[in-house]
Write a protein that binds this DNA or RNA. Sequence first.
DNA 1: AAAGATTGATCAGTCAATCTTG
DNA 2: CAAGATTGACTGATCAATCTTT
Lengths: 141, 141
Amino acid sequence: MESLAPEITAAWTGLMRAAASVQGAVEAALKAEGLPPLGWYDVLWEIEQAGEVRPFELEPRLLLPQYALSRLVERLVRAGLVARGAVEGDGRGQVLSLTGEGRAMRTRIWPVYAGALRSALGERLTLAEAADLARLLRKLR
Amino acid sequence: MESLAPEITAAWTGLMRAAASVQGAVEAALKAEGLPPLGWYDVLWEIEQAGEVRPFELEPRLLLPQYALSRLVERLVRAGLVARGAVEGDGRGQVLSLTGEGRAMRTRIWPVYAGALRSALGERLTLAEAADLARLLRKLR
DNA sequence: AAAGATTGATCAGTCAATCTTG
DNA sequence: CAAGATTGACTGATCAATCTTT
């Protein structure tokens, strides 16, 4: 049985548990306020930043495969938060933009999201520790 | 718009991306060898450690709700890796144990699992960094 | 054929309701 | 009623196949 340094296994289990715990806390906070899940926020945010975006540009930023983004956008459109438009000069594609409701929802979600991150991270780490953690995590991508 | 220290948001995005990246690498390695997903390994390992276990004892260790464990165990039983037995003195419960196939599968999975962790973590962090990372992550549970 | 995107089928996760025994 | 566990119904994720346009 090939073995692994205990520091490595501790980092591995720590990573899995911390990610589940923090993400769970954020999702729970959103749900408690009757807000949509985290994934929705990410998409709304990216579209708002860009103004108008093509779905394939979002894929690498959100780390989602094409079909997952397609279905996620479908839900956002059905919920009236995102609008799909035609693209001039390329009949295959489409362009995404936020509706007024979409902007309003993004704005409603943010304080809840930020509050949850503050409890889950901000209150448990000093800023120096958070920066250190971010530095170490960046090595794992 | 309440704001969040950039160190905190960097730690948050780092945590989500690192977890997805490392877990994705491990799952991909298992799939490439035709092996079952990570969740199966965790259950097999816990049962092997214990010899015999009651499902409700596994829940807190695996951080799974009752129904999720129930369905996961169902798949493992159907795959012939786990056996369910009756519990004497308590007709409600059951006791789980590994079959020979279950032990063999756990043994087959481990080197692939360990190898993936070595590439994803061991080759990217010194032991001191891994220990430091684990220490910081433990504060987030 | 390749790029952008969607869809059908299937499988896994989730919630509430249920069942059985204590 | 509480504890241990399962189930039905629904939602979400996944893979391969498909469709349309370039």
